[in-house]
């Protein structure tokens, strides 16, 4: 066997372990990541392995932690900063937007300016955590030039993409779906680096393209099952990276199917789907058989009650509905 069964949480833990063992400049910083093992247990056991030099536990100071990570990266370290919930990334935005991603370009693009750092953070709803612990804010970050954004959908991708992110010489935002942490999958035993910026065709088809990333891949798979039973052949794509975006893969698929549904967990207006639709219009407009469909969260804070939350967040039913609308256009 050259594969093992791992949860996404354990696959991330493995990637962190492997990269820290490989490169002494890699370290993790964040809140409660030591004995506690992180709010979701992702860094469990790493303090024992790497000590306080490798696992830097911090006060609750996100606004500065991001800058501290940046400063250490400028001086040759490779920090992996854990932000406990993606909702808290609003606190790091100045240091991301005005500092980390700009230094290299605005200081002249010279080789002695590099900011190799990873921000890991759990995103998304579905656990009744309420409005400030359930958001998918990648749309905000997609608007930032110079920030790579990765969103794994499987344990194998989580490990391979995180390893690539840590070895990348640029700031990378690495998004982890809370609902996928305990989901298991096959992970290769070898190094298995996954290149950044390459989408993956998960299900090949010819009638309609479902564009997904992170947890929405599973939702699109389910929707695809339904559509197959209805006699359609949907194509499901996992973007894996939002920046850089694999425009070629998107264009190729939409040129083939002529119909597309873009799916995200964030809110609709000005979101990832809006950008994806623009890319499709610019690159595959004359192949379209019907208007692109967007499936996203309603433009609302995520409500607490599971019943209300399910209504506001996108679900498999929304994807099926949008697909059928597109297919019958």
């Amino acid at each position: 066997m050259n594969k093992v069964d791992l949860s996404m949480k354990d696959a991330i833990n493995l990637a962190l372990t492997e990269e820290m063992e490989r490169d002494g400049n890699v370290f993790i910083m964040g809140e409660d990541i030591g004995v506690y093992g992180g709010a979701f247990g992702v860094t469990a056991g790493l303090l024992d392995k790497f000590g306080e030099d490798g696992i830097v536990e911090t006060p609750i100071s996100e606004g500065s932690l991001m800058g501290i990570a940046t400063g250490s990266a400028l001086m040759g370290m490779r920090p992996v900063l854990e932000i406990m919930f993606m909702d808290f990334t609003t606190l790091i935005i100045d240091q991301v937007l005005n500092h980390a991603v700009k230094f290299r370009y605005m200081f002249g693009g010279r080789d002695d300016i590099r900011v190799p750092l990873v921000i890991r953070t759990p995103y998304g709803g579905g656990r009744a955590y309420g409005a400030s612990h359930s958001q998918s804010l990648e749309g905000l970050f997609l608007h930032i030039p110079g920030l790579k954004i990765l969103v794994p959908s499987t344990p194998a991708d989580a490990r391979g993409l995180l390893k690539s992110a840590i070895r990348d010489n640029n700031p990378v935002l690495f998004l982890e779906s809370k609902l996928l942490y305990n989901k298991t999958g096959q992970v290769p035993k070898d190094d298995n680096l996954i290149p950044i910026g390459k989408a993956k065709v998960v299900i090949e088809g010819e009638d309609i393209t479902l564009l997904s990333y992170g947890r929405t891949l599973d939702m699109c798979r389910e929707a695809a099952d339904y559509l197959e039973n209805e006699g359609y052949k949907p194509e499901v794509i996992d973007l894996r990276s939002l920046n850089p975006l694999d425009k070629k893969a998107i264009t190729k698929s939409v040129e083939k199917t002529g119909r597309v549904v873009v799916v995200e967990e964030g809110t609709l207006t000005g979101g990832v789907g809006a950008e994806l639709c623009s890319v499709i219009m610019e690159n595959a407009f004359f192949s379209l058989e019907s208007p692109p469909e967007r499936v996203a969260a309603m433009d609302l804070p995520v409500p607490y009650s599971p019943v209300l939350e399910a209504e506001v967040l996108p679900g498999v039913g929304d994807i099926v509905e949008a697909s059928l609308r597109s297919l019958s256009y």
Partner: peptide, 21 residues
């Protein structure tokens, strides 16, 4: 720096790197 106080954490992080190295 153009953001008032913006480099205070970055400087702090550089110091962290010096200490770690």
């Amino acid at each position: 720096n153009g953001i008032t106080g913006g480099l205070i954490p970055v400087a702090t992080g550089a110091a962290l790197a010096f200490k770690m190295k």
